[in-house]
């Protein structure tokens, strides 16, 4: 029996489920939107046992943790302000511990812990150690240093370190615009000291590359976002009228090797990885999204990734 943890709205999970049905693979799906009662997670020197939603987890042979995480705090406790915040924190540590427990006992593909602890700087450091090219980057609280970085590159961009900003109060609403170019005016408007800003050299790209990684296999796609002003800085500023050209790509073997040692290092068995292929002919690692979307990649490249994922569970 396979356990799927996902959002009920996730198209890719639905498509994988169809293939599981096709191959006659038994599965149970728990959705992250629902309250999932935790019957017990019992630990003793002699044994440990886990039952969620009346499912005895010892009957589960493999887990595909596709999106989000399970909710074990009843919905009735969701609107208690700071109390809820506290309960959620406790729940977070529980969920992560359960993941660690399951990971040590069975095949467990995907990770909530990796998703929330997806620190871009750590990944840059690891990627560099594995021999991958990374963009020149700076994190600074100083206007002087930022100006120094700005002046030593023809153009620079800025993005968030971990979380896109999303603040809504009664009088303000602040939303992330994703990656953006840093201009003279922007810098001039800054104080001498500020909260840490993450900036990178702007790399002239020939195309971008999105890699979906699953159990030591790579499914890669080239994204030609350069011709379109809207997507020049980041293809995620989607143009829905005329979509960027997206075509299958074969990463060079040495890049795949470096990526494999990278994913081993950060203990990732699935995820989406972004690269740039620069006009000066280099593959440059940008970042990882452990629970990134791959539906569009699978469709554009005719990869049938959903079937390949289902097949992975056939052998368990």
């Amino acid at each position: 029996m396979i356990l799927l943890i996902s959002s009920k709205y996730d198209v890719s999970t639905n498509n994988v489920v169809r293939w599981l049905n096709y191959y006659g693979i038994n599965y149970v799906r728990l959705n992250t939107e629902d309250f999932n009662p935790l019957n017990h997670f019992s630990l003793s020197n002699k044994s440990s046992k886990l039952t969620i939603n009346d499912i005895d987890i010892s009957t589960i042979t493999a887990v595909w943790h596709r999106r989000g995480r399970l909710r074990h705090v009843p919905n009735s406790l969701n609107n208690l302000g700071k109390v809820t915040d506290y309960l959620k924190k406790e729940e977070d540590s529980l969920v992560k511990s359960i993941e660690t427990y399951l990971r040590s006992t069975k095949k467990y593909i995907g990770s909530y812990t990796s998703e929330v602890e997806n620190y871009k700087l750590e990944h840059l450091m690891m990627a560099k150690e594995c021999g991958l090219n990374i963009p020149n980057s700076i994190i600074t609280t100083s206007k002087k240093d930022l100006i120094g970085f700005y002046n030593s590159h023809s153009q620079i961009i800025s993005k968030d370190l971990r979380y896109p900003i999303n603040i809504k109060t009664s009088d303000v609403s602040i939303n992330s615009i994703g990656t953006f170019k840093v201009t003279d005016e922007l810098i001039q408007g800054l104080d001498e000291q500020f909260a840490p800003i993450y900036a990178q050299e702007y790399i002239e790209k020939e195309f971008e590359i999105r890699v979906f990684y699953f159990e030591r296999r790579f499914f890669s796609m080239g994204i030609f976002s350069q011709h379109d002003e809207q997507t020049q800085v980041d293809y995620r500023n989607y143009n829905t009228q005329i979509p960027n050209r997206c075509v299958p790509i074969n990463l060079p073997l040495d890049i795949e090797k470096q990526l494999l040692s990278f994913t081993d290092k950060i203990k990732l068995n699935t995820g989406s990885i972004d690269f740039i292929y620069s006009t000066d002919e280099r593959y440059i690692f940008l970042e990882v999204n452990p629970m990134g979307q791959f539906d569009w990649l699978s469709k554009n490249c005719n990869y049938h990734i959903e079937r390949e994922i289902a097949k992975e569970f056939m052998e368990v």
């Binding site: 080239g222 299958p248 074969n250 990463l251 490249c301 005719n302 049938h304």
Partner: peptide, 10 residues
């Protein structure tokens, strides 16, 4: 590095 498109239908 740009392979042919798979013509598989599944």
């Amino acid at each position: 590095i740009f392979p042919k498109l798979s013509m598989e239908w599944a």
